[in-house]
Amino acid sequence: MSAVAGRFDELQKLGVEVLSVSTDSVFVHKIWEEEELSQMTKNGIPWPMVADGAGNLGRVYGVYDEANGVNIRGRFLIDPDGVIQAMEVMTPPVGRKIEETIRQVHAFQLVRKTKGAEACPAGWEPGMTTLKPGPDLVGKVWKVWQPQ
């Protein structure tokens, strides 16, 4: 969470709002934010920390672990129409990398801006060449894009 908080300004510039969810109560969220997270981030946690005590939200997002009563790591990128464009679900011992999330935000925003006229190939980073899907590109991707 603190890693995301460190890039919050950048996410806001991209027009991205953040919501975090765990099965902890709002009281636990408050103390965690005040006692620990505020020591790891410049301004604490600036977004709503959602309490999902019964795992009701985790269940509909497919991340609730019934045996352990917790939500496993799940990251969902939702576009302005409410459509889930990307999801990443991981077991607890390995953390996520916010840079990858931000890369995907850039990529999905570009695709949205071009109304699908441009697509982002594997390994795409902002500023790199995009693909223009269409009859002329069939069998010719190698001319405009090579794996790194």
Partner: peptide, 11 residues
């Protein structure tokens, strides 16, 4: 708006 919805195991 774009929304980043993050689930995690626990505080």
């Amino acid at each position: 708006k774009w929304v980043l919805l993050c689930f995690y195991p626990g505080d």
